[in-house]
Amino acid sequence: MGNSGRSAGRTAAGRFIDFKAMGPFMALVALFVLGALINDAFLSSGNLSNIFTRSAFIGIIAVGATFVITAGGIDLSVGSMAAFISGAMIVVMNTLIATLGAGVETVLLGIAVSVVLGVAAGAINGLVTTRGKIEAFIVTLGTMGIYRSLVTYMADGGTLSLDFAIRDTYRPLYYGDILGIPVPVVVFFAVAVGGYVLLNMTPFGRKCFAIGSNEQVARYSAIHVDRIKTLTYVIQGLCVSIATIIYVPRLGSASSSTGVLWELEAIAAVIIGGTMLKGGYGRIWGTVIGAIMLTTIGNILNLTDVISNYLNGAVQGLIIIVAVLLQRGDWRRKKN
C-alpha cells in the first residue's frame, strides 16, 4: 500500500482500454501476426493444431498453478510430479497387462492410479506447508527433488517405456480427436472452463483470492485458511495428473528428463496471464493464453532460421518480459 498515493492517480482514459485484461491477449495476437509473417506454414491447420495440443500439458498444469499462486502459494514440484506420475502409470499398466490384458480396463486403472497419486502428492505439499508452517517454496523444492529421484529410481536411471501391446488402446487419448479437435485441446479447454468457474464463481475461489491478498483478513472472516490452501495444492496435483494422463500416450515413455523445468514454464504462463505472483489476484483465461504464448514462441523459433539457435532462450526471455510489461501497463503513467 506504500505507493497508494502515486497509483491513485490513474486516469479515466487508462480504464478505457483495460490493459490488465487485454495485455496477454494482445501479445498473443502480435505473436501470431509475427508467426504468419515469418512462415506461411504457421497458420496451417496442422501447425495451429500442434501449437494448441502442445500447450495442453503446461496449460493444464498452469491452471492448477493459478489456484496455488492466487492463494499466495507456489508449487515447484509439478514438473517432477508429472514425471513421477508418468513413470508410476507406465509401471502399473505394464504390470496389469499380464493379468488384465491390453484392454481399456488397464488404461482406466492406470488413469485411476494417476489421479490418486496426483491428489495425494498435492495433499502432501499442502499439508506440510500449512500444518508444518513451512514456506511453500521450501516444501515443494523438497518434493521436487523427491519425485525426480523416485522416477529415476523406478527407471534405473534409464527410460520407462509403455508396453507396445497397450499403446494402441491408449494412443487416441493424445492422437485422437473429438469433432476434429484434438483430445488434449478438448481436455485443456474443459479444465480451463472448470478452473474458471471454480476460481471466479464459487465461494472457494473467492476464498483463494482473500487468502492470497491478506491471510489475516481471511482468518478474521471465518475462512479455514489452512484447509483452502491445502485444497489449492490438491487441485494442482489433480491438474498435474490430468496433464500426465494425456502426456503418457504421446511418447509412451517417462524418464528422469521428463517434465524438467515444467514448473517454471507453468509459473511463467500464470504470470504472463496477469495473475499476481504475490497472490490475491488470478485469471484463468490469462493463464491459458500465457501457456499458448509460451508454446507459440517455441514454434515460431522452429519455423525460422533467421535467429541463431543459440539465442532461442534469449528470445523467449525477452518476449516473456515484454508480455508482462504490457500486461502490468504501469509504464504508461509514470508520473501525474
Partner: peptide, 23 residues
C-alpha cells in the same frame, strides 16, 4: 533444410520434428 536443437530429449525431439513437418 534446417538444424534445430532438440537437447537429446524425447519431448523436444517430438516438438521440433512436428514443426519441421509443418514447415
Amino acid at each position: 533444410l534446417d538444424m534445430k536443437h532438440a537437447n537429446w530429449n524425447r519431448d523436444d525431439g517430438f516438438e521440433v520434428m512436428q514443426d519441421f513437418l509443418s514447415r
